[in-house]
Each structure stands twice: as C-alpha cells, then as structure tokens.
Design a protein around this nucleic acid. Structure first.
Lengths: 392, 392
DNA sequence: CAATATATTTCAGAATATGAAAGAAAGTGC
DNA sequence: GCACTTTCTTTCATATTCTGAAATATATTG
C-alpha cells in the first residue's frame, strides 16, 4: 500500500507508521511525503507529545489543497453540484433543475451552462477539476456517454463538450463507479484491493475493484451486474433493458413496484411513484400482508442468486451490498442467505466476506473527491516507467 | 508489452523491432536482452541478410535453456508426464496409472513417487521446475488442493508434499488455468491482456486474465463459471456440485448425457460412458432425431446465457470458447447466438470479441511450459520495488 | 542536565530507465 | 576494391526512485 492510500483512511498517521503500512523504507517515506506536502496534497498536523522520544507529526490529506466541483445528475433530473475539498469535505452545494428534452448533446450543453453558472456564483475558488456523474452507460476513459435513461443515441463526447465550455478538466463517471470510489477511498472497502460493490436502489448496479484499481471493464464501460439473469424462461420478469429475468427486475425498487411498461419511461414523477409504492409495500409487509412479504422475499432470493453467481464466477473477495435496510435486513435476509448458500460452491463462499450497508447521504461528494484526488495525482505523474517493466 | 511477452509469440523478432513493440528505449532493449541471454532464457538466431544495412539478429525463446516437468492427472486417472523445454516443445513423455484410493495426501505421495520414477528414467536433464495440473479446486498460490473429484477433505498441501520428495520447485494448478496459460502464451489469446476462457468438456470450466495477469480469484482459487446458474426453479437440472441449474449441468458433456447420481461418482469408466453416449447423441442428432437435437440446442442455449451473463457482469473483452466442434459449431450455434443476443446489453456485446476454438492436443504441454517460464522468470526477479509505487 | 527513547532526515549506493552518439555490419555505386 | 549509405546494436552520461545505515532532531525521565 502506498502513502496516499494509507492517509486517505483519515486515521492519524505519522511518518514513523508509514514504513510498516506501505512496505517502503523510512528514507522513501521522507522524500515521498515531502513531495506530497510540496504539491499541496497533504499537510502536517502537530500532535501533543505522548510518552518519551521525539513526538510524531501526523499527516493528513490537505483539504485546502484545492477544490473540485462534483456534479451529479440524479435520477430525478436535478443537477446536484457540490464543491468539495481534497479531503472529501463539502464546502458548498447547490441544486439546479435540468430539463431532459432534446438530444443527448443538447443535454451536455445545458449541463455545461448550469455548471458555468454554479461555478461563477460559488463562494469558493481554487478549482482544479470537474467530475460529473450520470445515471448512464459511460465510457469514462474517453468521456463518452452511450445511453442514458430514455435517451438512445450514438455515443456523445460529454466530457469534451463540457470541458470546452468551462475550460477545466472534466471527468465523466456513472453513479455506481462513484459509489465504489467513495467506499474505496473513505468507506467500508478501504481495506480491500479486491471487492465488488452491488448497489440496490431504483435499479441494481455494480462496480468492481481488482488489484486496487477500478475495473471499468475492458472497454471502458462499467459492467452491469444488475442485468445478470436470475431467472429464465417464460415466467421471467421483463426488465427495462429489453431482456427478461434480470436481477434488477426482481430485486431493485423499480423492479419490485413497477411493471415494465411504466419502467421504460423513467420520469421524475415515476421515481416519486416508486417511493410511494415502496412505502406502501414496506407498510403492507410490516402488517404481515402475504403478497408484500412474498415480493420482498423474492427480491432477497434473486439478490442471493446474483451474489452466488458472482462468487462462483469471479471470486470477488469481498462483496459490499448497499441496499435500503428495510429491503433486505428486515424482510429478506433469510431468503437472501438461503439462495446464497444453495447456489455457491461452499469453498468459495467461505472465503468471501459479505458486508451489508446502507447508502450514506454523503457518498456522492466523497466519490467525487476520490475521483478528483486520483486525477490530481495522476496529472503530476512521473515520466519514467516502473522499474522491471522491461522483463516480464 | 515487455520483451518476453513479445518473444513468446514465436514470430521472428529482432532487437530493432523491440522498442516499438515494448515501448522501451533501444538502450534498455540491449541491456534487457543481454540479461535474458545471460540467464539462458533467450537465444540469438542469425538470419540471412536482406536489403542493405546491418542485418538484424533474431531473438527467440531458448528451448535449451532448461527443462520442465509437467504432469497432468487426467480425468481418466492417468498421470501424463511431459518433459518440455522453455520454448514449449515436448522432448519426452510418458503416462503412468495412478490409483485413486485412500486419502488425498496419500494420493499426493503416490504422485510424488511416480514423478520421481519418471524423472529418473527420462532421457532428459536440466530440470528446473515441476508443474502439476489437477482436475481439482486448487489454491495455486499456496499449492493446496481443496477438493478433487470424489475426494472431499481438508485442504492438503499438495505442492509441499511433492516438493519434499523430489527436491524441485513444484507448482500446482488446475486444468482450466493451464489451458488459459497455454492460450495466452502460445495460442489465440496472445494479443489479449483481458480475456476469459471458457472450456466445455466433461464439465464447463473457466479461467480469466485481467491486465495481462491470470486472475486466480482473490483467494487464490479459480472461479468456476461452470457453476453459474443458467436455470432456476424446480425444473433446474441438478449438478454434481450439489446445486441445481448450473451451466455445467446443461452444456458440458457430463451434463448432457449423465444423470446426476451417475455423475457424482466420476470414475474413469464413467468418462468412457460419457464418450460413448456423446457419440450416440451426436449420431442421433446427425440423423435428425428430435430429442438429441433438443438436448444439443439446450446446451447451446445455456452456454449462450452463461456468456451473456458474463459479458453483462464483467465485460471480459474477449471470450475464448473452447468446445468440441460438433457440440456448438454444428448443432447449437444458432441457439447459442440467440441466447447470447437476447440476454446481453447490446453495447457490451458489440465490444466483446468471441472466438470459437477446439482444444488442441498439445495444450497441456504448452500450458505447463508457460507456467514454468513464468516461474523461472519470477525466481530471478529483481529486489527493488517498481518506481512510483510510493505515491498512488 | 545527562540519559534515553522515539521520530525523522541525510546520504551514498544500487537498479533501472532514457536518449544521443558511437560503433558494427551489411549492401550500393563507381 | 573502396568510399558511401543504410540499418541495427551498443555505449555511456544522466535521471529517477528506492534502500539502509548513520546522523540528527525533539521529546520525556531520572
């Protein structure tokens, strides 16, 4: 593990701790931390001396090292704009409505204008980066958007369009990758270099880290575990993606309370409808209403199947399952566990850690900050190749 | 790409080609190739001069650089022992029967004895490595075998038991990892740093490379795509793994012609039975017998589902499908394609290359040679860490 | 205030890269 | 046959990054 990776946990860490935690020598720690301090990425924090000996100087990520603008187009079609420092602390935020009419490149233009306005009005300076998160199929390497909600078009160079307007580096990601970054940098997946995040929300989405790096999939896409099938045959539930039997069609909130024709529309009012129906469903389940209980049990069952298949086929090491508490912990935990156990090779199951969690409200700021930290670091990358690259 | 990676393709390559093919400078190529020549891993081959200018000197893997012993315990319970040079050429081979009675560690002892005998009798010297491939769930990092065919026991330190006896470095792998190495070093996956191999044989097995490295799964296991479910519910076919609805239960030869009680036994005579029944099945299908055609169509359908799920969930870049020709190309290609198309997100499908191939007869020698080349290189690894590891 | 303990920096040296210039080994033209 | 051209390969000065031992810094303790 390297220096920034250790520091980002937020724990107090001194230079003296770092050799053991990174595998690097003390000398290297001195020069590395000096460079990071000089670049403004980390700062020293004096601590009261404890015990004898020279007191340790704690190091931490430097919030004041720069600001990033993170914007997220929510499923409800608000553009949530946050100004976040490099320690992942939100300094300022604002929300602006975005109309989703016209073409996808028209949308990029409107988002660019909104961002321009937000930046000019914000009481914050020193902006280094803009990160944009979209509920879309995104090629984040190129900054292209392939399709999003009801839009279906040729790939649109979203990042380029916006960067041209606001003259800052722009990164485009999708929500689940952002969430996985937040968890990997600041959250429950910090200790894991290999993990898969599965997020259950209006849909089931996923993101994976392998060898400490986000797997965008080989083509720069995010793979979508939500559209792995957990049911086949004529009775399989249709999914908004066009196929049938996708896990998303059973285990997501959209799948639970919408029929596919409704789902295809995906308007903001539809999301309100989902919330409303979910409330009713949870209420009915609390009252012991059999059909509601059955729906939720099915949702757990299908999610268990999904996780089992993923464990059998990928051996992810750790699965971080982010889902509303009522959905699984309260009403479907047993079905989830049963389906998981029934469908997993026991040897692999035993070696896999499964963590249940709910979505924290600040995940998207943190994800955006993580994205920015990665970029800010990469920009000042060194020229030489890694030693040893020539052989293997 | 690095020097050995380029050379292993077998194409004639000179030092002058290497800067472009590896991204390294000419100076580095000189020193790197000198080190590899000195270590005996590669040799120069003089070529007739063509055109003007100093003639290029071709480099190639040095077959004479050492011998590795590759042993494979086949499903038929033969130990196929090959002596392979570092260029992947088989020098000598022999087959010895192994009795599969008693405990797993007893089996390790018997394999050690057989290997010892084979090595002492072989007309070949300079042995550097022993690689053992087993039809088992293997933790190749530690050299442990977790379960194999009918054996079910605590993990057994197979590699250690054998190494103690024959006093050579021993590596334990399983067949599908070996096959993927053969394809990655010498075969159809050379150009791909990211690919998934799916092998259809008595069972459906798989192996994956990501970022140019074999993914043994996070726990050192090979994930088993064969036990990803392609069917659910009461009608799902039971699988020998204990679950039901596994792709292996539909698409593998074992799944096609055995019922699960038979399958659980997995004796050599059972494999003969499988071959015999497969012949009959193929024959019947050639005659247009509806039930046979339906079975094969189902096999294609389920394999299509498996590949579709894998593409949706992992985005593997390339899928190399190794299966008997009759099985898919002749009788189930359409069903495979239909299931694939119906269940894949089109954007991801478009970006995935799918290659159909049959198993070449020399795959296991080549895989063992690849394994050995990897090890021989790693043994003479340098001490320093890769530059730049300290920051990110 | 010395002794001790702990934290951090300094610095010589090893490895691995680069890139420009030199050297080597052939053909070509006269 | 000999100078010239072309192409391939090596040499060498330099840069970067890391190591590890020794030196230095800054506290508490007796």
């Amino acid at each position: 593990m390297s220096v920034l990776k250790v520091l980002r946990s937020g724990e107090p860490v001194s230079r003296a701790d770092l050799p053991a935690r990174t595998g690097l020598s003390a000398g290297t720690i001195t020069s590395t931390t000096a460079a990071l301090v000089k670049r403004g990425l980390i700062v020293e924090r004096k601590a009261a001396a404890v015990g004898r000996g020279r007191p340790r100087v704690y190091l931490e990520l430097n919030g004041a090292g720069g600001t990033v603008v993170g914007a997220r187009l929510s499923e409800r079609r608000d553009l949530q704009v946050s100004f976040v420092n490099l320690a992942g602390v939100e300094l300022h935020s604002t929300t602006m409505p975005i109309h989703l009419t016209g073409t996808l490149s028209g949308l990029a233009q409107r988002i660019a204008s909104a961002l321009q306005e937000a930046i000019s009005l914000a009481p914050v300076g020193g902006i280094r980066q803009v990160s944009l998160s979209l509920p879309a199929l995104v090629d984040s390497e190129r900054g292209d958007v392939h399709f999003m909600m009801t839009y279906r078009s040729e790939p649109v160079p979203f990042a380029a369009i916006i960067a041209e307007r606001i003259l800052l580096p722009v990164t485009v990601e999708n929500d689940s990758n952002l969430l996985s970054r937040a968890e990997h940098w600041f959250g429950r997946a910090q200790l894991y270099d290999d993990f898969t995040l599965i997020s259950v929300d209006y849909a089931v989405t996923s993101a994976r880290y392998s060898n400490g790096l986000p797997c965008s999939g080989s083509s720069g896409f995010t793979p979508e575990l939500g559209h792995v099938k957990t049911s086949y045959g004529p009775s399989a539930r249709p999914c908004y993606c066009g196929a049938a039997g996708c896990c998303s069609a059973y285990s997501s909130m959209g799948g639970l309370v919408l029929n596919p024709d409704e789902w295809a529309e995906a308007t903001p009012s539809l999301l309100d409808l989902v919330d409303e129906r979910m409330d009713r469903l949870i209420h009915a389940a609390s009252q012991g209403e059999p059909r509601a209980l059955q729906s939720l049990a099915d949702a757990g069952e299908h999610l268990g199947r999904l996780v089992a298949d993923h464990i059998n086929g990928v051996d992810p090491g750790m699965v971080l399952l982010i889902a509303p508490d009522e959905l699984y912990v309260r009403f479907a935990r047993d079905q989830f566990e049963a389906a998981l156990t029934a469908n997993t090779i026991p040897e692999l199951r035993r070696r896999t850690t499964i963590v249940f969690a709910t979505r924290s409200p600040d995940w998207h700021w943190k994800g955006l900050a993580a994205l920015a930290l990665e970029r800010v670091y990469l920009q000042s990358d060194r020229a030489s190749l890694p030693a040893g690259a020539a052989f293997g």
